[in-house]
Design a binder for these strands. Structure first.
Length: 554
RNA sequence: GUCCCAGUAGCUCAGCUGGAUAGAGCAACAGCCUUCUAAGCUGUGGGUCGCAGGUUCGAAUCCUGCCUGGGACGCCA
């Protein structure tokens, strides 16, 4: 299925055996053979730097080593057309053109599965992301983390990992008490009372809405009830309301979780006590509190687990949650956090190690901040809510396709400027449309082909694809599975938007240069139709990975 | 003060597990629609890769120091 990778593999093996045959190095001391795809076509289809790497081992000049390797190469084995030595000792390989011929049939056969590999070998990975406190609206910044976690999960699945997506609900602790008290205050205010918001209350307009709704539904009934009972009810009500809204927004943003994990459930099952027991060797008492010696694992200072008042810090149930994850048998845990939480990483990794696991079992991906720009100016606050722009409002403004695409274009560790006008624009400035248009264009062509009586499933021979633009397209198509595997392995979803943009660009370029449907050249037309189908599949699969739609027409 | 991220073309960013003349989009300039969607294509100009050292046959990429911008340093979550 991964044709290009197979070609590469064969070539690597042949180079390796040529090196040993030429007596340049023993098999054990052979460095990993690295083949790169040169940017400049004059440097061939693949280039190897092995001669430079061997300079020290073989104690010879790189160019001389390269000559020896080339001498020993069996060119028939790896379908090599031509070999050149260049620069300081690069060996450039020009492959027989037909090595590309296998790509299109492989794509047509694989269909929606094209790009999938078994690189991950079924390893169990859990991706925890978003996990926003259910005390208010998701804002646009959360959208970046949501898109990142979701696309990363998609990539891991495509690369053959066994992935579970999870949202950790902070439904215990202070912030939920504050939510309850905030709801209470808004409820009483809705009844015309002069109730004051708690000091750390949540001032979002959504809480005001809850208050009004409660007042309308129950009138003064809750006001007359026992305070404790009332707050308990508001607590549940507020939680359910906020969580429902978060679920709905994320669902609309095309993000679905396998599990919504309740912090409260950790309290109910005694899991926190169990986790504390597990940390026992690294726990001590001081100043009436219980501490975790995270400095044993490189943290700046030790951290409190149980406060003087006997309650847990945020860290403690979170450790229990991670113990729970590990107990479920995941090989790898990936957490997606906002940049403002980066300082929390050392203590969490300390916990992982204290529980007997390798530090890298937990990988934390930090997502840098997002700034919104409109009409060239930074948008700080929403006029409507007084808070940061809600994710819902962003979706309404620019659409889910554009929002998701933009969040994914940039590497997670650079701050993102989100240009609202650009995301909204239906013009060639907008990369989302550019890519989608490529897909739509192919769909139109294929419809035209049918209308003109071409058989879309006619037999074809890729040898009729001879122009440079066709070659470029086929090479690009062939890179897709490796790109997916790399992006999954390196947690770099932005490689997908980059790839899909490049593929779209090659398609547009080809489209403008060549005509696909030609009654006078049936054989070439059949081959080109097959090529177009392969590009369409690959574009659609790439867009599927980032959950952006692939329209049939625009 | 310590830690994390960034600093690459006028702007927004790729490239960073070291490799050949540093890439893309936008902006600027010049062209392309009687032909499968011009939401497109073709071409031109544009760079001390923040600064200074170091490692290396080779550094935007690795190491050290410094500068600038953003973020974090709670018995908050």
């Amino acid at each position: 299925m991964n044709v290009l990778a197979q070609t590469e593999e064969t070539l690597k093996q042949e180079i390796a055996s040529a090196v040993t045959r030429a007596g340049l190095a023993e098999a054990e001391e052979l460095p990993e053979i690295i083949l790169e795809k040169p940017k400049d076509k004059a440097h061939g289809d693949f280039a190897a730097n092995i001669a430079m790497q061997l300079a020290r081992i073989a104690k010879k000049a790189p160019r001389k080593i390269a000559e020896d390797i080339v001498e020993a190469l069996d060119e028939t084995k790896a379908s090599i057309e031509k070999v050149e030595i260049a620069g300081p000792g690069f060996i450039n390989f020009f492959m027989k053109d037909d090595f590309l011929g296998e790509i299109i049939p492989a794509i047509l056969k694989a269909g929606k599965k094209y790009g999938h590999t078994d690189a991950g070998k079924g390893e169990k990975v859990q991706v925890e992301f978003v996990s926003v406190n259910p005390t208010g609206d998701l804002h646009f910044g959360h959208g970046r983390g949501a898109a990142y976690g979701d696309v990363l999960s998609n990539l891991l699945e495509a690369a053959g990992y066994d992935v579970k997506r999870e949202y950790y609900i902070n439904d215990a602790g202070n912030q939920i008490d504050n939510l309850a008290l905030s709801v209470e205050a808004r409820y009483l205010q809705a009844l015309g009372e002069d109730a004051e918001m708690p000091a750390d209350g949540y001032h979002g307009k959504d809480i005001i809405e809850i208050g009004k709704t409660l007042a309308a539904e129950y009138g003064t009934a809750w006001k007359e009830k026992d305070r404790e009972e009332r707050v308990a009810f508001f607590r549940e009500y507020g939680l359910k309301y906020e969580l429902g809204k978060i679920r709905k927004d994320l669902s609309e943003f095309r993000v679905e979780f396998d599990q919504w994990f309740s912090e409260q459930s950790l309290y109910e099952d005694g899991q926190i006590e169990q986790a504390l027991k597990k940390l026992d060797d690294y726990v001590y008492e001081k100043d009436g509190a219980t501490w975790f010696r995270t400095t044993d694992f490189g943290d700046d200072k030790d951290r409190v687990l149980i406060k003087q008042d006997g309650s847990y810090t945020y860290l403690t149930p979170d450790i229990a949650y991670h113990k729970n994850k590990l107990d479920r048998g995941f090989d790898k845990l990936i957490n997606v956090w906002g940049a403002d939480h980066h300082g929390y990483i050392p203590r969490m990794q300390a916990a992982i190690q204290a529980m007997g696991y390798d530090k890298n079992t937990l990988e934390v991906k930090v997502i840098q901040m997002v700034s919104l720009f409109e009409k060239g100016e930074k948008v700080k606050m929403s006029k409507r809510t007084g808070n940061a722009l809600a994710l819902r409002e962003l979706m309404d403004e620019v659409g889910v396709d554009a929002a998701r695409y933009y969040f994914i274009t940039r590497s997670n560790d650079t701050q993102l400027d989100f240009d609202m006008d650009l995301a909204r624009s239906e013009s060639n400035d907008n990369p989302v449309y550019y890519v989608q248009y490529a897909h739509a264009r192919i769909c139109t062509m294929l419809k035209q082909a049918e209308a003109k009586g071409f058989d879309l499933n006619a037999a074809f021979d890729a040898k009729h694809l001879t122009t440079e633009k066709e070659m470029d397209l086929m090479k690009k198509l062939g890179e897709f599975p490796q790109m997916v595997a790399d992006a999954a392995q390196m947690s770099t979803p932005h490689k997908v938007t980059q790839y899909v943009f490049e593929l779209a660009s090659l398609l547009h370029s080809f489209y403008n240069a060549e005509k696909v449907l030609d009654q006078d050249n049936r054989e070439r037309t059949n081959a080109r139709i097959a090529l177009m189908k392969a590009v369409k599949i690959t574009l659609a699969n790439a867009l599927q990975l980032i959950a952006v739609t692939a329209p049939e027409k625009m």
